[in-house]
């Protein structure tokens, strides 16, 4: 399936499966650091206009082996405002795999120090919702 850019008015959510990635103060930066194996993308779900139970159901079905703990919601436009330090900006691209609403945040920097910058910015722009 080809990728399409998410609508800036949409809400993207990153599901959180570890208590390492949030605290009583909100979402931690670590929720937005990509794994070494896929350093250029972060998996999210476009949750606009979905009822709450459906939002949680998608997250639970994506990782059946791990209980979902929380999620970090953010406006797509807020993500798209973040600079990649290469003259561009982050993108949110819907690929529809494994779920029709699945998307990836792309254009993440590869340098670890810059990944930490972007991760702190994403954490600041996101809202924590507990399951």
């Amino acid at each position: 399936m080809s990728e399409t850019s998410a609508n800036p008015a949409d809400i993207a959510s990153r599901y959180i499966y570890s208590k390492n990635d949030y605290s009583s103060n909100g979402v931690k930066h670590s929720a937005f650091v990509p794994p070494s194996a896929y350093p250029n993308e972060l998996s999210v779900c476009i949750i606009s206009n979905l009822p709450e139970p459906e939002i949680w159901k998608i997250g639970a079905e994506t990782r059946k082996d791990k209980p979902i703990k929380a999620r970090a919601d953010m406006l797509v436009s807020a993500v798209q405002e973040i600079s990649d330090e290469q003259g561009g900006f982050l993108q949110v691209l819907i690929d529809g795999i494994p779920h029709p609403r699945h998307a990836n945040i792309k254009n993440l920097p590869l340098q670890i120090s810059l990944q930490r910058v972007v991760a702190t910015e994403l954490a600041k722009k996101s809202k924590l919702t507990m399951s």
């Binding site: 330090e85 120090s113 810059l114 910058v117 702190t120």
Partner: peptide
């Protein structure tokens, strides 16, 4: 909002935000 990590080779990499912008 400053994050400092050290990898297993001893490289310290820091990144975050400050009142005047990005620091890394």
């Amino acid at each position: 909002h400053l994050v400092i990590g050290i990898d297993n080779k001893g490289k310290v990499a820091w990144g975050g935000t400050s009142p005047s912008g990005r620091i890394y």
